[in-house]
């Protein structure tokens, strides 16, 4: 049960029940769809990028607690960041949930609650779906992003 509490931390459950920045952004926004065919989770990430800064970011979709909370907390973490900063956070977050980071996740702030995901390899894709979708939205393109 202790591992489970590590995974389903209060912060994560809170964001799952009340996702922040949920909904569409009006054009001219960039958006991209992400899909995890294994569990059917779908997410769409919308954002405004101005002068290389993510000025606004929102998401829509249906998914499990991990993927919903991750998308919600991602929008909070990335809003106002430069594109380069956002990409760096994504990289560090990815290392965190796959267990590749060295151990200090201080500068990930609240996102550090996702450290428990590394003990559940089957759930890493849930935690990273929104992030991959964000990354793909930055790069542009039309094809939905798939975790497979």
């Amino acid at each position: 049960m202790s591992d489970l509490r590590e995974l389903y931390q209060e912060t994560i459950l809170g964001h799952y029940k009340k996702p922040r920045n949920f909904g569409k952004l009006p054009p001219p926004s960039r958006h991209r769809e992400g899909y995890n065919p294994l569990c059917g989770d779908k997410v769409t990430v919308y954002m405004h990028v101005k002068d290389d800064v993510v000025t606004d970011i929102r998401f829509e979709g249906s998914g499990c607690a991990i993927s919903t909370a991750s998308a919600s907390m991602m929008t909070e973490a990335l809003k106002g960041k430069t594109v380069a900063e956002a990409e760096e956070i994504f990289k560090r977050f990815h290392e965190l949930v796959t267990g590749k980071e060295a151990g200090d996740n201080d500068n990930l702030g609240k996102l550090a609650v996702f450290a428990g995901v590394r003990e559940f390899p089957a759930r890493v894709k849930c935690a990273t779906l929104a992030w991959h979708t964000f990354h793909a939205a930055l790069e542009g393109g039309e094809q939905p992003v798939s975790t497979e």
């Binding site: 389903y8 569990c39 499990c64 759930r123």
Partner: peptide
């Protein structure tokens, strides 16, 4: 209020 995927993870434990 609980996605099936989360049910599966908790039950697995």
């Amino acid at each position: 209020g609980v996605h099936p995927h989360d049910i599966g993870t908790v039950l697995d434990q």
